[in-house]
Computed example of a mutant assay.
Amino acid sequence: MTLIVAMLILIYKKANNIGYKTAKRRFVLELRELITAIMITLAGGDPSKVFKT
């Protein structure tokens, strides 16, 4: 699983032309936001009320 996550971070880094530490931090933040949005949707809520994007 660690290898898969490392490869996903490297792909994210290459797609966004950023450093590894920045890619890792942004990847984690975006993944956390996505998981939270999915959980809110499955619970019957509206993610747009939680995230002001």
Rank of each mutant, 00 (worst) to 15 (best):
1 M>K: 12
2 T>I: 09
2 T>K: 13
3 L>Q: 06
5 V>L: 08
6 A>Y: 01
6 A>N: 10
7 M>A: 04
9 I>H: 01
10 L>Q: 01
10 L>W: 00
10 L>S: 00
11 I>N: 07
11 I>M: 08
13 K>V: 00
13 K>L: 08
13 K>H: 04
14 K>S: 09
15 A>E: 15
15 A>F: 03
15 A>G: 04
16 N>M: 05
16 N>V: 06
17 N>R: 13
17 N>Q: 13
18 I>C: 09
18 I>S: 06
19 G>W: 04
19 G>M: 03
20 Y>K: 06
21 K>R: 13
22 T>V: 08
22 T>S: 12
22 T>D: 15
22 T>C: 05
23 A>R: 03
24 K>Y: 07
24 K>C: 07
26 R>L: 14
27 F>S: 04
27 F>H: 06
28 V>T: 11
29 L>K: 15
30 E>W: 05
30 E>N: 13
31 L>T: 12
31 L>M: 12
31 L>S: 12
31 L>E: 14
32 R>L: 15
32 R>N: 11
33 E>D: 15
34 L>N: 07
34 L>W: 01
34 L>K: 09
34 L>S: 08
34 L>R: 10
34 L>M: 08
35 I>L: 15
36 T>Q: 14
36 T>E: 14
36 T>R: 15
36 T>A: 15
37 A>K: 03
38 I>H: 01
38 I>D: 02
39 M>R: 15
39 M>F: 04
39 M>D: 09
40 I>G: 01
40 I>E: 01
40 I>T: 10
41 T>L: 09
41 T>E: 12
42 L>R: 05
42 L>W: 04
43 A>C: 09
43 A>Y: 02
44 G>F: 09
45 G>W: 10
46 D>K: 11
46 D>T: 04
46 D>W: 03
47 P>T: 06
48 S>Y: 08
49 K>H: 03
49 K>V: 06
49 K>R: 10
51 F>Q: 09
51 F>L: 03
51 F>H: 07
52 K>F: 04
53 T>C: 01
53 T>G: 10
53 T>Y: 11
53 T>H: 08
53 T>K: 11
